[in-house]
Amino acid sequence: MQAVEPGGVSPYRFLLVAARLGSVRRRSQDVDMIKAQRVEAADSALIDPAGSEWRSAPSTRLSLEPTPLISQPSAYVQAKWETIDYGAIGNVSVQALHNDGGIFFRLQWNDATENDDIRDTDQFTDAAAVLFPVKEDAPLTSMGSPDEPVNAWYWRPDMETPFSVTSEGTSTTIRTIDPNLRGNGAHTGGAWAVVIGRALQSAGDGYVQLTAGEEGKVAFAVWQGGNDERAGLKAVTLEWQPLELEA
């Protein structure tokens, strides 16, 4: 499973380009505004990935890249995966809607193998996550820092509800149950469609707070369970995407 298509941009090359550009933000295929339209719809309609509201919601296709091997926080993981491709999911289509009470992200990606449960010790599930900076300049590649944490909503098909994951840097993630966080996924026709939603505001240590009419940032990750992807072995958007919540 070659994750980087021929002629595609390797994570290293991309980082190099990003470094050359300094802090100048490019408006290109690598960074796309995710607009969360405001709709009059119940949470129960929006949490359904097949719900009618999603048919007319704008969709942004984001390319994903494997996380850099050197950023994997264990020598074992680096040694094992040096010769194995990971980050097998090449892109994800993202939609976002909010109803002033909650915000919902619908992620869709092609995946021929449905890994929806851990049926044996050597099996891993597919998974997806939406990541937010809790402080504006939180670094993405390291999953935040002690001063600038990040908050992820991590969905897995074998779990009733997604986890809220807070992180202050590599290896520091903590999973908590946020009663305001919900998820719903379906695998049909060789693709996953997953909705992850939460109240715009949710009280919790390290939880991101969102407000209608304001802008923020968001990033996405997808794990291919059939390729034993878990932890830092994943496909990600290597840059924050700007997020706008319609007033």
């Binding site: 020598a75 074992y76 040694a79 094992k80 044996d120 010790t121 050597d122």
Partner: peptide, 14 residues
């Protein structure tokens, strides 16, 4: 001292 890549035994193997 270098880690040696291995694999996870299955339930059937246990």
């Amino acid at each position: 001292g270098d880690p040696d890549p291995s694999r996870i035994p299955t339930v059937n193997e246990f």
